[in-house]
Every structure is written in C-alpha cells, then in structure tokens.
C-alpha cells in the first residue's frame, strides 16, 4: 500500500482485557501528518485500539510499532517524547493552577537535575497561547468551565511536544459549542503545526467533517478506512452502526453528513428484515 512505513502502526495485534478478547489479529497504520479519527459503535474496541497505540494496553499478540521499534520495548520517556496522549479522564490535583498543570507536560523532557529549562518555560507559554488559555495561567483548574478545562489538558499534551498526539474522546461531556471549539483546535494544531493527530470520536458527523483519514471499527475489526468522502456511505453506516440513513453533502463544508432515516422508515425496514434474521 504505502511505499514507506508510517511512524505509528499496529501489526496483527490481539487485544484483550484479562481473558476477554476485544480484537483479534488487527493491523492498522496511522498515516503521517493526518488527522485520523476512529469511529464505531459503543464497545466496538475503538478506545481499546487507541490504548494499544499509546502503549497503555499491551497486546497479547503482535506488536505496536513506533518509528520501526516495538513500542513496549522502548524506554517510557523516549516514547513520551514522540507520542502524546490525552486520556479520557484525568484528575486535576486539588488547588493546581493552569500554568502548573500545563508545565507538567514537560515531564518527559526533564530530569532530576534538569527540572526547568528556559525552553520548558517558552514551550509552556506557547502551548497555553496556542490553546487560548494564555490568560488563565494563574487561575485554578477546578474553577474553569468544562470547555476551558479540556483546553488546558490539551495544552498540557501540547507542551509534551510530540509529533504524534492521541486523543481519547476529547469531546465527551462537553456541550456542542465546546465540542466544536475543541475540534477546531485539533484541526488548527493539525494544519499549522503539522502534528499527526489520532482521535476517538463518538459523533460520526464531527468525524466526517474534521478527519482527513477515517477508521471505522466494528466488533474489533476495521470495516473501512480512508478519507471521509470515500468512506462515509449509507451502506457503511448501516454495516458499522446498524442504522439506516441517508448521506448527504454537509451544506457548510460539503463533507458527508449522516441523516438517520425517519422512525417509520426504519421500523418498516426492520419488519421486512425480521423473518430473514
């Protein structure tokens, strides 16, 4: 497919929690410099895949490769300088300020005797400016709104200065305006800084609008991947999500827009299908 191997890929990995297998013999490559979005129904294994790519879940078989090396054999700090992750839930310590939290993103670049270089200072300032929280430095994280807080966490991940950044459902728990806000920020980071972004998103329409590369997952298998304009079709949505729908052009961006079929139409189709299944 590609002539050159991409920086981050999974090679026929089997992923399981304890004894429960989530995905078997899964292979995927994350195109360099893409904004890749992983979509799929609940419990399809998309977050599990992201955890494996970020080395938090060790595959029981196969391996995840980062720059040609098995990620689980690499030193933790070395990985953390290349690959960042915004986890689904992080805890802001009580009484921490925004600047302090963002500064923690510099951890992999520091050591016991190199705790705070001028470069650390500059990058933290830049990361806060890039995410629009530059004015909030002295504020406490617990007094911010949900949207602001998510920007602060993203700023922390940016301060890590990794060419690859993984985001696990970055828009969950945010209202629509803040969801768009965070996605705009991701798109901007992707475009202006040339970082490779991989996000798990719930909303297929958001994914179709923002992704440059889409990966659709169902039951631990990759059903389709490619640019949203090629991947998002009515057949695919039905196959992956089990939802009858139309796919039309988004009036704003001309990207695919999924419009679920009306309830009556779906009920009819369901009844027609019933005897067969």
């Amino acid at each position: 497919m590609q002539s050159r191997r991409q920086r981050l890929s999974a090679e026929s990995v089997t992923l399981s929690y304890d004894q429960r297998v989530i995905a078997r013999d899964l292979s995927v490559e994350i195109p360099d410099n893409s904004f890749t979005v992983i979509v799929g129904p609940n419990a399809c294994g998309k977050s599990t895949l992201l955890r494996a790519l970020s080395r938090m879940l060790k595959p029981t078989q196969g391996q995840v490769l980062l720059d040609g090396q098995a990620i689980h054999t690499m030193p933790a700090k070395k990985v953390a300088k290349t690959l960042g992750l915004l986890p689904q839930s992080s805890i802001a310590p009580d009484g921490i300020t925004v600047a302090d939290l963002v500064a923690r993103g510099r951890y992999p670049h520091q050591g016991l005797l190199r705790q705070w270089s001028p470069e650390d200072e500059r990058i933290v300032q830049e990361s806060m400016a890039a995410t629009g929280v530059g004015e909030l430095g002295e504020r406490y994280v617990d007094e911010l709104s949900g949207g602001q807080r998510q920007r602060v966490w993203i700023a922390m991940a940016l301060a890590q200065q990794t060419p690859l950044l993984l985001l696990d459902e970055p828009t969950t728990f945010l209202d629509i305006q803040h969801q768009i806000d965070v996605l705009d920020l991701c798109a901007e980071l992707h475009e202006t800084q040339g970082r490779t972004l991989v996000a798990v998103l719930h909303d297929l329409n958001h994914a179709a609008r923002y992704a440059t590369h889409l990966i659709a997952v169902r039951d631990g298998e990759i059903v389709a991947e490619g640019p949203p304009s090629e991947v998002v079709t009515a057949e695919l949505v039905e196959r992956v999500f089990g939802l009858r729908c139309q796919v039309i052009a988004d009036p704003e961006t001309a990207t695919p827009l999924v419009v679920p079929a009306a309830r009556e139409a779906r009920a009819k189709a369901g009844a027609a299908r019933m005897p067969a299944s």
Partner: peptide, 24 residues
C-alpha cells in the same frame, strides 16, 4: 522535534509570546 510556532491566535492580537509572569 517539530519546531512549534507560537501559532498566532486570531482573536488576541495583544498577546505577547512571552508574558512577564513566569509560570515556574
């Protein structure tokens, strides 16, 4: 490493790249 530009945020022309208050 990628050289990160302090991406000029459109809504804040007054923002200086290095404010006087040091974070740490």
């Amino acid at each position: 490493m990628t050289a990160t530009q302090p991406s000029p945020a459109p809504e804040a022309p007054a923002r200086r790249p290095a404010p006087s208050t040091r974070t740490v």
